[in-house]
Simulated scan of single mutants.
Amino acid sequence: MSLDPSALTARYHAAINALDFQSIGDAFAENARYASNGVGALCGRAAIVSAFRDYFLVYPDQVAEDSVIETLSPSSARAKWHLTATDAKTGETVERSGVELLHFDGEGRIVAIEVFDDD
């Protein structure tokens, strides 16, 4: 089976933008790893999906866009993104941008993500 890491990344990001937690969970392998300056290191699909749910309770109106999604290897992709969100409690608007490296297994599930915010 030939994977298209860029298409898999786009589908994963579409699930996030739709707040489709079932599809977000389905995108990850059971023992996936997620690392970000914002959330730290997470291990396992359940922990990752739980962190997404918690995040979207605080920032329910997040809008994220990719300026670039590129395939790096047969099993990895890189996405350059920008997001805007409003804190539901404080009303403060947050803008972030950065790069995300995604690594997939042979079934097209995410096994690792590394998120790097722009400085």
Rank of each mutant, 00 (worst) to 15 (best):
G25C: 03
G38N: 12
A7N: 12
E30V: 07
E92C: 15
D61R: 02
V58D: 08
T84F: 05
V68I: 13
I16F: 03
L57A: 13
A41D: 15
G91I: 12
S2L: 14
F56L: 01
F52Y: 11
K80R: 15
S36A: 09
R96E: 14
T84V: 14
S6F: 02
S67G: 06
I69D: 01
E70D: 14
G91E: 09
N17T: 13
Y34S: 05
R45K: 12
A15K: 02
V68L: 09
A79E: 04
V115P: 03
Y12H: 11
W81Y: 07
L42Q: 04
F116Q: 08
W81S: 01
N37L: 15
N31I: 10
V115D: 04
F52N: 08
M1Q: 13
L101P: 02
L3M: 09
V94G: 01
G25L: 03
F116Y: 14
G38Y: 12
G98R: 00
D118E: 15
S36D: 09
A32W: 00
R33N: 06
R45M: 06
S50V: 09
A46L: 09
R109W: 04
A51P: 05
T71V: 04
R11G: 05
G106R: 06
A41K: 15
V49R: 05
D26E: 15
D61G: 03
W81V: 06
L42M: 06
P5I: 03
H82G: 08
R96G: 06
E95C: 12
H13T: 11
E107V: 11
E65Q: 12
E30F: 04
Y12I: 10
S36Y: 03
G38C: 09
D118F: 08
E92A: 15
V63N: 04
D117F: 12
R53H: 08
D105I: 07
D105N: 08
L3E: 04
T84D: 10
L8A: 01
A27K: 02
D54W: 11
A47H: 07
L8E: 07
D20C: 04
I16A: 02
H103G: 08
V49I: 10
F56T: 02
G38L: 11
D26G: 11
L102V: 14
A35C: 14
L57N: 14
R109Y: 06
V111N: 02
A27Y: 00
N31Y: 07
V58G: 01
L57F: 14
Y59M: 05
R33M: 12
A85K: 01
A79T: 06
D26P: 07
V49F: 02
A112Y: 04
A15G: 00
A77P: 02
S67D: 09
L102D: 03
K80N: 13
D105A: 02
F104Y: 04
R96L: 13
I113P: 00
E70A: 11
K89L: 15
H103P: 06
R78I: 00
G44D: 07
F104A: 03
I24H: 01
R33D: 13
V68M: 08
A14E: 13
T93D: 10
R33G: 05
E95K: 09
L72K: 02
G108S: 04
R96D: 13
L72C: 08
A29H: 05
H82V: 14
V111E: 06
H13M: 09
A47D: 12
D20L: 08
F116W: 13
S6V: 05
G40L: 05
T93F: 10
